[in-house]
């Protein structure tokens, strides 16, 4: 079964950092204050970041 991962739309990300705070795996960082970036190897696809994102910039995708 393909694993779900968080995918961040860099164009609408406001780099507020809400996702960082909820990520249980510390799999997200803010790249130079511009947008959030996930580490696919750490992401477990729990979806907490997507739920918290005020800009709805995060989607869970199967890859």
């Amino acid at each position: 079964m393909p694993k779900r991962k968080a995918f961040i739309n860099k164009n609408i990300c406001v780099a507020c950092g809400c996702c960082l705070k909820v990520c249980p795996k510390n799999a997200i960082e803010i790249f130079k204050g511009i947008y959030a970036q996930t580490h696919d190897d750490k992401c477990v696809g729990c979806g907490l970041c997507a739920k918290s994102c005020p800009a709805d910039a995060i989607e869970l995708t199967k890859n």
């Binding site: 507020c16 005020p54 800009a55």
Partner: peptide
């Protein structure tokens, strides 16, 4: 909306 919606247009 979401709790930190302000952050989007802050």
């Amino acid at each position: 909306f979401k709790p930190r919606a302000w952050c989007v247009y802050c």
